[in-house]
Amino acid sequence: MSVISKKQKLTPDQLIKYKQNQQKISMLTCYDYSFACIANQSDVDLLLVGDSGVMTLLGHPDTTHANVEMMSMMTKAVAFGAPDKFIIADMPFLSHRQGISHAVQCADKLIKAGANAIKIEGIDGHQEVISHLTQSGIPVMGHLGLTPQSVHSLGYKVQGKTFDQAQKIKQQALDLQHLGCFSIVLECVPDQLAKEIAELLDIVVIGIGAGAFVDGQVLVLQDMLGMTQHMKPKFVRHFLDGFSCIQAAFNQYHQAVQSGTYPTNQESYTLDISNHKQSKTPKEVVSA
């Protein structure tokens, strides 16, 4: 396997070459300028402005609370911070279920905000929307398996465990490729099913909770950094104990303020006495 160099922003065609070259692809979610700046200087291949941002940043219980204005704002921030990365933005809940015209308007806002591609969950009922977007020159990433926008009907559980379910997801993946998608995300499906789909498709398959036999992986940034304590799905690995590190920094700052050791003289601005001319008092002015 020869590694393809990343000298400039990736393209969908280059990602497919990664797959052909068996070069694994890394993707992380990102929602704000500060983390985007760090990601831009990292080796990570792709950034996903996920609708999960309304959960990790705003505290909503699920992704159905996202709207196109929220997604556009986060996309613009990430695009400012990571101009060298290929950025995919999620189409929010129901934005692709209100007809082709509405979907095009939403996709247009996300592209103008700085996205290089959009991601759409599911396929049933909006095949024409996906086809129209791809034919309009908008790169589309599909999303099958556990689709978080369908939480009220599917819940958070592994999909494709039965033969019929697996066959349906496999056919949906083929259909997304036929509709012009350059990639799909497979979430929470058995690893053998994900392997079969990755081998079946010519386009890139990114997994999250889909095992190691796909073309790449995606994780939520805050999960990967270990910043979330209340929930840790089986597929999440903490590459940093972010919660404890940040909490410790908060406490160190608090203790420094309380003890008076912050700020020091070196961290304070001082008056240059030699260049300071004392102004006359009112009494001196009257005397003069």
Rank of each mutant, 00 (worst) to 15 (best):
I120M: 15
C181R: 05
V204M: 13
K232H: 09
I16R: 12
S5L: 06
P190Q: 03
Q20F: 06
K234M: 09
E128H: 08
M74Q: 13
N21K: 09
S42I: 02
A66F: 12
G209I: 01
V54Q: 07
L200D: 14
K85S: 12
A288Q: 07
S279I: 13
T11S: 15
G59H: 13
T134D: 08
F235A: 02
A173G: 13
V104T: 06
H254W: 10
Q14P: 01
H276K: 04
M27I: 11
P139N: 07
L46F: 04
Q165R: 09
N21V: 07
K232S: 05
Q8V: 12
F163P: 02
S5T: 11
I184G: 00
I4W: 08
C188G: 05
Q217L: 01
L186D: 11
I38Y: 08
K234C: 09
N265E: 07
S72Q: 06
G81W: 14
L48P: 11
G145P: 05
I120H: 10
K24S: 05
Q20Y: 08
I169P: 13
Q222L: 02
M91V: 04
D62W: 03
G207L: 12
D13Q: 12
L47I: 08
R237K: 13
A36R: 12
S72V: 08
S26E: 09
